[in-house]
Design a protein around this nucleic acid. Structure first.
Lengths: 243, 243
DNA sequence: TCAATAGTGTCTTTTAGACATTATGCT
DNA sequence: AGCATAATGTCTAAAAGACACTATTGA
């Protein structure tokens, strides 16, 4: 009933699945492991919980992400915990999984600041084999992101501060992997009253310029839930390039 | 970057929030702590992960629940992980939180088998002060149960194998804390095609007997998600006795 | 004036909310 | 018979789905 002496320490880490859009496709941020096990292999940014520094697991996730990638994401939430005796060759271990979203520009800023460390971006539809059970963690995160996007403003965290309606629309389509009716989508977002116009306009080439929006300041950095999920069209219409 | 020697072991436990209906109200199963810290105080059924016995955290939750309460719930899922340096006086700790649902009859069976151990049932609307951060864990579990009930067949796990339509209806109302239109609710469940008739009837007193149903066998013990949440009526109609 | 994208309008279909009505058994 | 609960039907209102249409710019 009590913890016996023959039990080694249980390893406790945090691992973060950080998503961003790149080339209109959802990508994951990965790092190379600096040491054994899996030295040199790709893995999620992660590391041990430091009892002295980290007041809780969220703080640990923030610290690890900052240390390994230089990124401080505006959205970071606990995903799931992966805990068993087989996922780490060193013994029974717990990974406190987090998932995070950033706008691509934040990535570029971070990458230039710390050129030695570095991280790599991978399209979620072609993530290579990762260390430990990190492929599974990515899968769970992807699932969660897709599910939650259907009934929340979560995908807005993948956008820069100002964006056009077309961009939000596109972002939802890329994240959810389906085509969404432009009109219905706009109606929904308008009724929900989550966006506000920026008075500046912007041209998308040689055509009619689009209105810029931002997430309403009073609910910026607050996730807004829908009363029902976004309607997904009936048959097999899929967003460009995604299934 | 690596785990230093001055770090004590991180404590890793599982704690289970087990819900059941009793007297038409949602209750939580609590136990008394056999030793320090909080000896004799109420707490969630929980305990250390045993590296030798538990292949993963789910197995640990099952074992702990069986050991402490004699109950093997049909529904058990990971809830959230609570991990910080302050929740346990012994040091930095991780609680892998699970939440579970059972039909009341399972409780009665367990309680009579093991009269020494025992657990206590508390109405969720009047849970006393608990050990550690267990009140918070209960709150999170309640929230999750309510949220998930709105778009799934989760509350069916609170019912016995056979039940009437009125019982499912009532159960949803008690769990969600709102009155649901009987007709619309029935329509929804019928369209979803999750229930099947049992050929036996049953009397509810001196009146027309109700048809008994069970969850369709092909999806028994499988959670079924709705494409949209259950409609909650417009204004302030609340279920009997709940807000 | 044309190409190309932004943004709006409108019709149809579906689903939900409200509530009336019928059904069935017991005493 | 009459009551109490079970079960169904119907009307209305509100969303969603589909898609056509208008608007606005630069070339």
């Amino acid at each position: 009933m009590t913890q016996t002496n023959r039990d080694r320490n249980i390893i406790v880490t945090v691992d973060v699945v950080l998503f961003a859009l790149h080339d209109k496709r959802l990508h994951v941020v990965l790092t190379r492991r600096p040491r054994e096990p899996y030295a040199g292999q790709l893995a999620l940014p992660g590391g041990y919980v430091h009892q002295q520094e980290d007041i809780d697991s969220l703080a640990a996730a923030v610290r690890v992400l900052r240390t390994k990638t230089g990124i401080a994401p505006p959205y970071l939430e606990q995903l799931y915990s992966f805990a068993d005796g087989a996922r780490d060759p060193r013994g029974w271990s717990v990974s406190l999984g987090y998932f995070a979203l950033v706008d691509e520009s934040v990535l570029r800023a971070a990458q230039s600041v710390e050129p030695g460390f570095g991280f790599e971006l991978f399209d979620v539809s072609s993530v290579p084999r990762l260390s430990f059970d990190h492929n599974r963690i990515v899968d769970v995160a992807l699932q969660r992101l897709r599910d939650k996007s259907a009934y929340s403003t979560l995908p807005c965290y993948l956008l820069p501060e100002q964006f056009t309606f077309a961009q939000v629309h596109e972002t939802y389509e890329h994240v959810m992997g389906v085509a969404l009716d432009k009109s219905a989508f706009r109606r929904k977002l308008t009724e929900m009253d989550v966006l506000e116009e920026c008075k500046g306009q912007r041209v998308g080439g040689a055509h009619r310029p689009a209105q810029l929006f931002r997430v309403k300041t009073d609910l910026a950095h607050r996730l807004r839930l829908l009363d029902r999920p976004l309607a997904v069209p009936n048959p097999d219409k899929t967003a460009t390039g995604l299934a």
